[in-house]
Nucleic acid binder design. Structure first.
Lengths: 162, 162
DNA sequence: TGCAAAATCACCCGAAAGTGTGACGACAAC
DNA sequence: GTTGTCGTCACACTTTCGGGTGATTTTGCA
């Protein structure tokens, strides 16, 4: 399916406005610096220091601006997610026994489905990685899967996992 | 349900690299400015011009840096709301554009979720396996996933895929 | 008590997945 | 006409997976 993503013009306009505002602020800041003759507080060859100072300051401000600019979007990110209003999931025991899947294997299938690596699963279950491998290997065999992603897919359609 | 995204080390590494590169660029720029004695090309009161130049430059760079740095930041905060399971699936375009996921990447996410290998995806889309890898790599980056199973899990909770 | 299933672990090896970098053409936007 | 994004591809490299084999311990139950 192709999903044409149109550019959000409103945010862009807002961004431009912000940048302009930002520039103005910068101008004012420079003016202030000039008026206070701040640069005469340092010694002769102060241009470099002055430049570095301004650079650092504006770099920091720029980063901050960039962040606040992009942070505006995540403000809306707090959104409700429609989830199938289902109660606590219960694995289809019929199919589990049909396929001869052991409880441990089912457990590992769930952890695989939640995106964990073998290493992470091993740590979580306090077993060695090799153990997880053997379990998953046998699991794939029983499910007829070649990859963990496929195992997850099959497990979901077979209602072995939520 | 809160989906806490753990720090993707690769992105962080890249971010650090970006910062270092950025700093180096700044240093080089200042050095060049100094070496060419650019400030003597303009009239007496050149300090302001010089400062403004540096300021503007660093501001731009800072904004860019800030944006690129935080672009992948938006943590996917999901709020669960019971809803009668919808019929035909439609990807949440809002979140897709929020995460900056391209149509092609979304397509590949779907194929990954259906349990296909990179090779199989490549064959199905008539592209090279390397291309699929590139797409999935960028996809994982945007989703904050380290593995394809995790990408699928995140994609599902974010309603990017059925 | 003894047996079978389940769970545990190790080791090797090849295959798949993922990273990092760089490159190129197309195409839209400014 | 430069700039930016997207899609494409390569290649070297590291990490993770998965298969195969064999072994030991735990546990449920006949």
């Amino acid at each position: 399916m192709t999903l044409t993503r149109e550019s959000a013009p409103s945010s862009r306009r807002r961004a431009v406005r912000d940048i302009v505002l930002y520039g103005l602020c910068g101008g004012v800041l420079i003016a202030v610096l000039k008026l206070t003759e701040y640069r005469f507080l340092v010694v002769e060859h102060s241009v470099e220091i002055y430049g570095a100072l301004v650079a650092a300051l504006f770099a920091g401000l720029g980063i901050w601006l960039g962040q606040t600019l992009t942070r505006k979007k995540p403000a809306v990110i707090l959104k409700e997610v429609p989830t199938p209003a289902a109660g606590p999931f219960a694995a289809d025991e019929t199919r589990v026994s049909q396929l001869g899947i052991t409880p441990r294997e089912l457990e590992i299938l769930g952890l695989i489905a939640s995106g964990l690596s073998n290493r992470e699963i091993a740590d979580r279950l306090f077993v060695s990685e090799n153990t997880v491998k053997t379990h998953s290997s046998r699991l794939f065999d029983k499910l007829g899967a070649k990859r963990r992603t496929q195992a997850v897919q099959i497990g979901k359609t077979a209602r072995l996992i939520p």
